[in-house]
Each structure stands twice: as structure tokens, then as C-alpha cells.
Nucleic acid binder design. Structure first.
Length: 134
DNA sequence: GCCAACGTTGGC
DNA sequence: GCCAACGTTGGC
């Protein structure tokens, strides 16, 4: 089991819409590092859903239901997509300020590499974030 | 709106 | 292969 965090601007694709639609095709990633992480996603891996730009907070947990396949929105087969479904919403959204002041989370890639849109989480980081949000 | 931190592109 | 110029992301 692996743990991940993905970012989405709520103005583009929000958690609310994700829940309403019941599923998301996670496509459009055009960054090699993010793509390489996506290729390592396995069915049933858990994924924290972060609202970037507006909100700047983790809003819920999703799950991988389909592993990488060619991104239907790309004109090159090198890009990939995965399918996600919502699992549960955070009771308390975990914003970036809270994350930054938590010493346990100081090595989180969300902080260290702010532009990365798909990133792995250690189990410890995953648990710490869930503890803050659930 | 600004800027830091990347990524990409293209000339050499 | 290097690097300047430019583009994008995302926090502030």
C-alpha cells in the first residue's frame, strides 16, 4: 500500500465536484516527475486531495481504482492518467499553515517542492495528516 | 500583483 | 552540453 497527495485547483476541479461525480479521471499531468509517481500508483492506494491556490488545504481522501493508462487528453502516449474515487472528506480541512508548523511534517514534499502536483507520502506523514483532518 | 522555484526551449 | 530567456505553478 502506498500513499500519495494530489493537488487540484478548486476552480478547475474541486473536491465537491469529485464527490458529486463519484469518480475522477486524473489526467492532464505534464510534468515528468509527477508522471513517474503516477506510474507507481496501485489499485487501492490512498490519495490525499489538496486544494491549491484557493483554500490551500487538504480536504479529503481518495483511492486509486484504475492504474496508469495513456492520458486521453494528451497527444503523446508518454503521458498517463489514473482513475480516483472519493473515500471520505476531512472533518477539518488541514491547511498549509498547520502543515508547516507540524514538526513531523517538515520533510513533506508539499512544503519542500511546492510546484509538484503529484507526490508520494510516507505512511507516517499520511497518518499524521489524517489525524489532523479526521 | 509579485516573486521564488522550477521546467522548457532554442541558440550557440 | 551550456545557458539565457521565457513560461508556469502556487504561496503570499
Amino acid at each position: 500500500m502506498n500513499y500519495w497527495l494530489v493537488k487540484s485547483e478548486p476552480a478547475v476541479f474541486s473536491w465537491e465536484r469529485f464527490v458529486k461525480e463519484g469518480k475522477a479521471v486524473w489526467d492532464g499531468v505534464r510534468n515528468y516527475q509527477a508522471r513517474n509517481y503516477m506510474k507507481n500508483m496501485c489499485i487501492d492506494d490512498l490519495v490525499l486531495f489538496y486544494h491549491s491556490n484557493t483554500g490551500k488545504e487538504i480536504v479529503g481522501i481518495a483511492k486509486v481504482i484504475k492504474e496508469t493508462y495513456p492520458d486521453p487528453t494528451a497527444d503523446n502516449i508518454k503521458w498517463v492518467a489514473v482513475d480516483l474515487v472519493p473515500v471520505s472528506a476531512f472533518k477539518k480541512f488541514v491547511n498549509i499553515e498547520q502543515i508547516k508548523i507540524n514538526i513531523k511534517l517538515k520533510d513533506l514534499l508539499l512544503i519542500k517542492q511546492s510546484r509538484l502536483s503529484v507526490m508520494p507520502l510516507s505512511e507516517e506523514h499520511y497518518r499524521a495528516l489524517c489525524k489532523m483532518g479526521l
